[in-house]
Computed example of a mutant assay.
Amino acid sequence: MFPLLNEFIEELMDLNQKKFAAFMVDLDGTLIGRDEKIAPRVAKTVRRLSEKIRVCIATGREPRDAIRFARELGLTSPQVCDNGALILDPTTGNEVWSAPPLGERQAHYIVTTLISRKVPFWATHPGGTVTQASQITHWNFTRVSALDVVEDVAEELLAHFRLHPELHVVKVFLPYNGLWAIDFTTRGVTKATAAKWLGRILGIDPANMIGAGDSYNDLPMLEVCGLRIAMGEAPDELKALADYVAPSVDDDGLAVAIEEFVLPRLI
Rank of each mutant, 00 (worst) to 15 (best):
I38S: 08
T30G: 03
E36A: 03
I38P: 02
L157R: 05
E155S: 08
E95C: 08
F121Y: 07
A85K: 12
I110P: 11
H138F: 03
R47C: 06
D152Q: 14
A21W: 10
T45V: 07
T124G: 12
V55D: 03
E151D: 13
T92E: 09
R71E: 13
G93C: 06
E104Y: 00
N83D: 09
G74W: 06
T131E: 14
F20P: 13
F20Y: 15
E62F: 14
A133P: 10
A123K: 02
R68D: 07
F69W: 04
I136H: 02
R117E: 13
A70T: 11
A66D: 08
C81Q: 03
A43R: 13
W97I: 01
V144Q: 04
D65S: 04
T91L: 15
G128F: 06
T59W: 06
T76E: 11
A43K: 12
E156C: 04
M24L: 15
T30A: 04
F20G: 06
R41L: 06
I87A: 05
N83C: 11
K52A: 05
L157H: 01
Q79I: 06
R68S: 13
H138E: 10
V150P: 06
G74Y: 02
R117Q: 12
I57V: 07
V130I: 08
W97N: 12
I38G: 03
F20D: 05
P101T: 11
L31E: 01
I38E: 13
G84P: 04
A39T: 11
L49C: 08
T131P: 02
V130T: 14
P63T: 00
P120D: 01
S50G: 04
P40S: 07
L88A: 02
L88N: 10
L86C: 07
R64I: 15
P101E: 05
I115M: 08
K52T: 15
D26L: 06
E95A: 11
E95D: 01
P78Q: 06
N94D: 15
V46F: 05
A107E: 00
Q135V: 10
L157F: 08
Q106I: 10
I57F: 01
P40D: 13
I53L: 03
A21S: 14
V150Q: 15
Q106V: 11
T45D: 01
E156A: 14
C81Y: 09
L73D: 01
E156I: 04
L86H: 02
T137D: 12
F20Q: 11
V80K: 08
T124N: 09
F141I: 12
I67D: 05
I57L: 00
E72S: 09
V42M: 00
Q135C: 03
Y109H: 15
P40V: 00
T142N: 07
L31A: 00
R34A: 15
G29M: 07
G60Q: 01
A133R: 14
